[in-house]
């Protein structure tokens, strides 16, 4: 499997994603957005960063680049697609998943480790975990507060499309454990297909043992299947 890590001007986690995937034995390469997806693309990561300087809204400009139409088409045909951090913002803006990520409740950029509760273990992203598992991964964002229309949240939860929620070290989903004020503590969601996911925390920064913590490996293992 060759995973395309889509690079926009201002992406800055593209190398990290390639290194983390390579560490797991997955063939991954950076792809400049204007070059389009390579023909042999079997998986897609939209990495973190500050594409287009976060002008207008985080992810708004990148989401409307032509490559995202290719990413949407690939996602619809079953290619695994993961958006992380700015990639999650781009994914929401591009309609890969429902909802939006906007300014943190604190109005500050937050860079810290958080705990996530695995809400579903029957997806490619969470097959390495059990439902209810608590994993520790870093966040680094100023616009990570998940917002969604109330009726759409009901649908999202009824369809069981919440992948991760912010929780405390014991797995309790509380307001204190919610770093950015996300609606219903949502940290990551699935798209129309379970092969499409976006999340604000960084699994690729919790994959290489030498940078502290490997709890995020399971998410990227979706590409190793």
């Amino acid at each position: 499997m060759t995973v395309a890590v889509v690079q926009f001007g201002g992406s800055n986690c593209d190398r990290d994603a390639v290194r983390a995937l390579t560490h797991l034995g997955v063939d991954a390469e950076r792809v400049w957005h204007a070059d389009g997806l390579p023909d042999d693309t079997d998986g897609i990561v939209v990495p973190g960063g500050f594409s287009y300087g976060d002008y207008l809204r985080a992810g708004a400009m990148a989401a409307r680049q032509p490559i995202m139409a290719e990413v949407r088409a690939a996602a619809e045909s079953g290619t695994p697609v993961l958006g992380v951090c700015n990639g999650a913002q781009i994914g929401c803006e591009a309609g890969l998943t429902d909802g939006a990520f906007t300014t943190n409740r604190s109005a500050r950029f937050q860079c810290e480790h958080v705990h996530l509760r695995v809400e579903r273990a029957d997806t490619p992203w969470t097959a390495a975990y059990d439902e209810g598992d608590v994993i520790e991964v870093p966040i680094a964002h100023g616009e990570g507060r998940f917002e969604i229309r109330e009726d759409r949240l009901e649908t999202l939860e009824a369809d069981d499309r919440v992948l991760f929620r912010y929780c405390d070290a014991d797995g309790a989903v509380t307001d204190e454990a919610n770093p950015n004020g996300s609606t219903a503590n949502v940290a990551g969601v699935l798209g129309a297909r379970e092969t499409v996911a976006v999340m604000m925390p960084h699994p690729e920064r919790a994959t290489l043992p030498d940078v502290g913590g490997t709890d995020g490996q399971g998410v990227l293992r979706a590409f190793a299947e």
């Binding site: 809204r57 708004a60 409307r64 969604i148 229309r149």
Partner: peptide
Amino acid sequence: DRLLANPTI
């Protein structure tokens, strides 16, 4: 519709 506003928020 296409860019300036995000209908979710």
